[in-house]
Amino acid sequence: MNKHNLPKIRVRETIVSYLFLAPALLFFFTFVVYPMLSGIFTSFFDYTLKKFNFIGLQNYINLFQDEIFWKSMRNTLVIVLGSVPVVVIFSLFVAVTIYQKKAGVRSFFRGVFYLPVVTGTVAVTVVWKWIYDPLNGILNYVLQSGGIIDEPIMWLGDKRFAIWAIIIILLTTSVGQPIILYVAALGNIPQSFIEAAEVDGGNNWQIFRKIKWPCLMPTTLYVVVITTINSFQCFSLIQLLTSGGPNYSTSTIMYLVYEKAFKLTQFGYANAMGVVLAIIIGIISFAQFKVLGNDVEY
Rank of each mutant, 00 (worst) to 15 (best):
Y255G: 03
A272M: 02
C234A: 13
G274Y: 04
I211A: 03
L264H: 11
Y222Q: 05
K260S: 08
Y269Q: 05
G274H: 06
Y248H: 10
Q239A: 13
L241V: 04
K210D: 13
K260V: 00
G245H: 05
Y269H: 06
A278S: 15
V275L: 09
Q239N: 14
N203E: 10
Y269P: 01
S251N: 12
Q233M: 11
T265Q: 13
A270S: 08
N271H: 11
N247R: 09
G245Q: 02
V224Y: 00
L237E: 04
L256M: 12
M217N: 09
I226M: 14
L264Y: 14
L256Y: 15
T220W: 00
I226H: 05
S231Q: 07
N247G: 13
Q266F: 06
A270L: 04
R209T: 14
W205Q: 13
I211E: 03
T220E: 06
I226Q: 10
V275H: 00
Y222A: 06
Q206R: 14
L237N: 03
I253V: 11
V276E: 09
L264S: 14
P246V: 07
F267L: 14
N204I: 12
L241T: 00
T220K: 01
I226K: 08
V224A: 04
V257Y: 00
E259L: 07
W213V: 09
Q233C: 12
R209C: 10
I253A: 04
A270F: 02
G245L: 03
Y248P: 03
R209D: 11
Q233E: 14
Q239W: 15
T220L: 08
I211L: 08
F235A: 11
Y222R: 04
N247T: 15
I229F: 06
L240W: 06
F235N: 10
A272P: 03
I207T: 15
W205F: 15
F235H: 08
I211V: 12
V223Y: 02
W213K: 08
T242G: 02
I280F: 03
M254I: 07
K212L: 10
Q233D: 09
P214Q: 08
Q206D: 12
N203D: 15
S236C: 00
P218A: 09
P214G: 10
V224R: 04
G202M: 05
M273A: 05
N271T: 15
S251A: 14
V257C: 04
I280N: 04
V224D: 01
N204E: 15
F208G: 02
T265A: 13
L264F: 13
I238A: 02
L241P: 03
L241R: 00
S251T: 12
L264M: 12
A272I: 03
L237K: 00
F232Q: 02
P218Q: 07
Y258W: 15
G244W: 03
L264E: 11
I280E: 00
K263W: 13
T219E: 01
C215W: 14
K260D: 09
L221I: 08
V223S: 05
R209F: 12
C234K: 10
S231I: 05
L240G: 03
L221W: 04
Q233P: 06
T228Y: 01
M217P: 00
L256R: 07
T228A: 01
V276A: 13
A261M: 11
N204W: 12
L237G: 01
